[in-house]
Design a protein around this nucleic acid. Structure first.
Lengths: 343, 343
DNA sequence: TATATTTGCTTAAACGTTTAAGCAAATATA
DNA sequence: TATATTTGCTTAAACGTTTAAGCAAATATA
């Protein structure tokens, strides 16, 4: 519309009859440039509406000040809050975020990694898609020599920094809560075992059941994709058992919601006949009736810690620091779906 | 970890004893390069794990192939779906997206714009924050000469391409639906009048009320920030009136949810005593009880059209095309909160 | 007063690509 | 067989910055 050509450092230099190098230094407040020149440069820069060309400076400095973020989806309170908090920490240090979502698809995730590497990001912070089993693309990031930080959905085999909650302990917390409510036959609709966090939740469930001498029945432990639809299907499966459970712990809130719908459709009283617990503390868990007991994962904390871990890696790249595995305690939010006290 | 230096075109050229220019052309399938050379280049490129440096090529070509996207928040089904669909269309044409969220804050939005311009995006697709009144930063985008496309939350004064639904007609649709249910005193908890879409919804409400000879009472028309909390507050305000409404049309689903909570707390029967309609068709509207009637905004359509509009602008920049204002029809999804038939 | 240091710049090269211009060899055309 | 065209490359410059090295003038030190 207005000026075709962007203003460059050269334009400012020409006007002031000084070199481009002097202008660049003036703009970066180099101590060897006189304050008189600095002021003049700043004045002209403002007049010409000068905006530094990030591409050029990134190319020259070998550093883009961009951080790539990969999440399964942004459309979830957990991930959107993680990203928001990461951004806050990173912006303060002059970094900006490029967000991408995998939609739980392995193929999309690989594309995202390629895009981010192509965009020359200085590092990647990621939470893996459900589908992801092969780690080749993540190895690719590592081989580039840029920091890779995983959160929530991680992988031990990759040997990279990780921030998440203690899924194993969370399962114990849930099982013990259900026992305290008088439940004696506790089922678990879990995620896919190949995903580390879901495997940990399953292990936690099994060990907690054993520890409390409750029946450990194969039929009560089901793997699921944890979508709302699959939650429905798996709940129906549990209801069709000869010996029904009196409590169901679902490893994801959306699947828990599906399960609840089935319970309501079958006129089963929640929590008195079957108690229900979800995972993730999505906002809707407190909105529906009965409100679903769930586990808060401290998304803001995770986002901030992931960002800080990245910054540490950038600051001390040579110093072979030890791997950071930050495991936070989760918090059980007890609501009506498992609280028999008020019944 | 492994190789410190990235592989460049120069490395490939040295190995094959040809010029860097030839390598560049070979990689871009230039017709003046022999297929023998092309094959050799591709082979070595693969062996050395060559990845083109986007920064360098973008700098040289004056084009980054990145599109900036600004939304009020990603944590909403509408926006996340819009983005997903935009991405699909843009990726096919070799463009990638940089997502940013304003969290409805004007300041954050200005920062986002600066970041995106700084990152040298080829265009910006945005939906404005609630707070945004001053358009200076959007004018800045226009003055750079790169395409700016607005969707959902737009502004007529900016004179840029826009994709959204017909908010004015949507209000008519809602009011007429409520009248068909037998409602005679219809209130509207609207958004801020300064935001174009909310203003259109308000105008639509007012005109539909007038057209149907219903009472147009100042007390029944309230501006709100449309958060869940404010929805609660405004609903209480309506309940304290001497003459209560028998229907409430809320311009956002979250606020509608807050309103519903207040209605339930006050043991008011929905929809028989007060019917309720929201806007946006957020997933939770169908999950809670009673499910909330709402308006579907065709997010996938909007996302695709926004992306295509951008691509058109890029392809024919000189040809002064006329402004694209694409207005889609919205769809009313009737649920229990306003359906008196089943009562 | 002679030498050393500091100040305030300039020069030149570099980051990794892309591309216009050009040139020699190979091939086609008259 | 002589000229024109095509093929397959090379050379050189450019995109806009940053930065190491260096130099003259100004100032400090002995």
């Amino acid at each position: 519309m207005t000026n075709k050509k962007r203003t460059t450092i050269k334009d400012i230099a020409d006007i002031l009859k000084i070199s481009a190098a002097a202008v660049s230094k003036a703009l970066h407040d180099d101590p060897r440039i006189s304050s008189k020149t600095k002021e003049a440069v700043r004045k002209v820069a403002k007049e010409l509406n000068y905006q530094p060309n990030h591409l050029a400076s990134a190319l020259r400095r070998g550093k883009s000040n961009l951080v790539g973020v990969i999440v399964p989806r942004t459309n979830s309170n957990f991930f959107s809050s993680v990203i928001q908090n990461m951004e806050e920490v990173l912006n303060k240090e002059g970094y900006n975020i490029i967000m991408t979502q995998s939609n739980e698809s392995f193929k999309k995730e690989c594309n995202n990694i390629d895009t981010l590497l192509f965009t020359q990001v200085d590092g990647i912070i990621a939470s893996m898609a459900n589908e992801t089993i092969s780690l080749d693309f993540y190895e690719k990031i590592k081989s580039k020599g840029i920091p890779l930080i995983l959160f929530d959905r991680g992988e031990n085999d990759l040997n990279v920094d990780y921030i998440g909650i203690d899924d194993y302990a969370s399962s114990h917390m849930i099982v013990e809560h259900l026992i305290a409510q008088g439940c004696k036959r506790i089922a678990h609709i879990g995620g896919y075992k190949h995903t580390r966090i879901f495997n940990n939740r399953i292990r936690g469930y099994v060990d907690a059941i054993k520890k409390n001498n409750l029946p450990l029945d194969d039929k009560l432990l089901i793997e699921s994709s944890l979508t709302k639809e699959d939650g429905r299907a798996k709940m129906m499966q549990l209801l069709s058992l000869d010996e029904r459970p009196d409590a169901v712990y679902v490893a994801g809130d959306y699947a828990a919601l599906g399960a609840l719908q089935v319970l309501k459709e079958n006129k089963i009283k929640v929590p008195s006949e079957i108690a229900l617990v979800g995972f993730g503390n999505e906002p809707f868990t407190s909105l529906i009736s009965p409100a679903i007991t769930s586990v808060e994962q401290h998304s803001s904390e995770i986002g901030k810690l992931a960002a800080k871990t990245f910054l540490n890696r950038i600051k001390e790249p040579i110093l072979k620091q030890t791997l950071n595995k930050i495991i936070l305690d989760a918090e059980l939010i007890v609501r009506d779906s498992s609280n028999r006290k008020d019944d």
